[in-house]
């Protein structure tokens, strides 16, 4: 690659640390994240985990609210199909997720910013690798930056 000056957006990208909100099921992915801790695995510090009893509790509003409040990515972790602690909650998550992804696509939010993974209580390594992978992919996309700032509002108001 040629040496050249970085554009301002590239500069902000270089220092950009993605913010990712995660919703982890209490019985699988949350436990797997605990296990990653007890196993002293190391992973990127960009994810903030919110515990829910089941991935089925994850209201699509939560995902949109996270994006609206500055998240660059949202990660939902649930039990493997057939393994839901509450029998079938994760299937509802899966269905909602598929429709939500279509809405996000129409709204111009890239696919990699919203992720659903089935991670069992034993799969600490998948917590580590998924988080690292997602952080890198979202980093490559750059900030989503949905919080309205005065700057952005005035830019909106620029007339033709």
């Amino acid at each position: 690659m040629r040496n050249r000056d970085l554009t301002p957006s590239e500069k902000s990208q270089a220092t950009f640390e993605p913010r990712i909100v995660a919703f982890f099921c209490n019985w699988c992915t949350y436990l797997a994240a605990d296990l990653a801790g007890t196993s002293r695995m190391k992973y990127a510090p960009n994810v903030r985990v919110i515990r829910v009893m089941c991935s089925g509790r994850v209201d699509p509003q939560f995902v949109l609210d996270a994006f609206a409040h500055g998240a660059d990515g949202v990660f939902i972790g649930g039990c493997h199909p057939g393994d839901c602690h509450y029998q079938e909650g994760n299937y509802k998550t899966l269905r909602r997720f598929h429709l939500l992804k279509r809405v996000l696509q129409q709204m111009g939010i890239e696919d990699e910013r919203c992720r659903l993974e089935w991670i069992s209580a034993a799969e600490a390594e998948r917590v580590r690798s998924t988080i690292n992978d997602m952080v890198e992919k979202v980093r490559a996309l750059g900030p989503l930056d949905l919080i309205p700032t005065e700057e952005k509002v005035s830019a909106e108001e620029v007339a033709v």
Binding site: P60, Q61, R96, V103
Partner: peptide, 13 residues
């Protein structure tokens, strides 16, 4: 908070 998200959630479920 978000009508679309809610109907989405209920119908997809």
């Amino acid at each position: 908070k978000d009508q679309g998200a809610k109907i989405l959630s209920s119908l997809a479920s």
